[in-house]
């Protein structure tokens, strides 16, 4: 599978996939007016990618400074999908939730996602200065 990148806009995050390291990154701010319009290409790609995923570890790095409530729902759907793959299909998936020390909201959101996940490895990563 090839690497790709979608540039950030003022209200949607940058999304990239590095085929060499098998890392998916989501970085920036997310408050589009219509979240499904934004997220459905990502989910279609993901489903395909997860299906073809063998032993190699798939890492998802999320670094969101701000996201609105519908983006929060989208993230939950994303984590549910990944958790299912880990639990049902024994896939190796890791999520890193990256936040800035000063952004206590981002940290709290990360903790809240983490609380509700049972099988998906979900790391809270404080960004290095």
């Amino acid at each position: 599978m090839d690497s790709w990148k979608t540039e950030a806009t003022k209200y949607t995050p940058e999304i990239y996939f590095d085929a060499r390291t098998n890392i998916l990154g989501i970085k920036g701010e997310s408050y589009p007016e219509n979240i499904t319009e934004f997220s459905s290409p990502l989910f279609s790609w993901l489903e395909n990618h997860l299906e073809n995923l063998k032993e190699q570890t798939f890492t998802v790095n999320i670094e969101l400074v701000y996201f609105n409530s519908s983006s929060s729902k989208m993230l939950l759907d994303l984590f549910d999908l990944l958790e299912e793959e880990v639990h049902d299909n024994d896939k190796n998936i890791i999520v890193n939730w990256i936040y800035d020390e000063e952004n206590d909201a981002a940290q709290e959101y990360g903790e809240e996602f983490q609380e509700d996940l049972n099988y998906l490895p979900f790391n809270l990563v404080k960004k290095a200065e």
């Binding site: 997220s39 609105n68 409530s69 519908s70 929060s72 729902k73 939950l76 759907d77």
Partner: peptide, 20 residues
């Protein structure tokens, strides 16, 4: 919030917006 986030389909998300 968590309960509603699970339940609610991805729509405009205002139910969640008010709780937020």
């Amino acid at each position: 919030y968590k309960e509603q986030r699970k339940k609610e389909p991805v729509t405009k998300g205002a139910g969640l917006g008010f709780i937020e």
